[in-house]
Amino acid sequence: MTELTSSELSRKIRQHVLRMTHHGRSSHVASGLSVADILASLYGEVLRVDPSDPDWLDRDRFVMSKGHAGAAVYAALSETGFFSPESLAAHYQNGSTFSGHVSHVGVPGVEVSTGSLGHGLSIATGMAWRARAVGAGWRAYALLSDGECDEGSTWEAALFAGHHRMSNLIAVIDYNKYQSLATTDETLTLEPFADKWVAFGWDVIEVDGHDIEEISAGLDIDPRDRDRPRCVIAHTIKGKGVSFMENNVLWHYRPPSDEELALALAEVSE
């Protein structure tokens, strides 16, 4: 595991996301900043994974369902020893395997390729079902965007996992309240969001998605103590850490310029 503290890891993730999206002229910088603390919690404190053996059979499974924030996952993996941070320079480059949406081919530690929304919770549910079927102790995690809760397939999985009381399944939702064109409330309101998950048979907690300690407390649960899947609604700020990117849909798509990168790096490095 990493030598970094979790807050150092989240800072590194943000720095990498800014540099990768700048260098690659790629989208979704604000999404990557939004999930940085959740990933720092997962890779710094919660997930039982082994960077020296990415295919370790007893590892926890983490499915990045919001694949568009793939840069942040690559950053987290590189800083926790799955591969060298220097590899991140290949992000978005011709011939590289570091695609904009997270992809498992050629990238150690990436469990599942995603990008089309609404896939990850089903896959994680299948993994959790399998762990239970064979009596394995590992857990299955899925990190979802709020926007992908527009997808019906997310709720198919929620219904199944609730019905089958999949206590080894943990969903965490990056609830930054912005999606591609506007806020979630302006697009398809999710509220009452927590109530929906409760109604589907989930145990729900809401956390400050930028407080790593709080996130980890929500995520690091013992399935044996529980009788239902856990949903962690992480209240986040899209573009968190860079004042001019926060809560601005522009940064769902626009990569930072040279000048903006310098300003942004200074802010996240404080």
Binding site: R61, S122, M127, V134, A140, S153, A157
Partner: peptide, 19 residues
């Protein structure tokens, strides 16, 4: 259940974990 998208995604997840 009547949920083919979840059925197929779950099948993939189960298979990735050895089924």
């Amino acid at each position: 259940g009547v949920a083919e998208q979840n059925m197929t995604g779950m099948a993939a997840g189960m298979a990735m974990a050895g089924a």
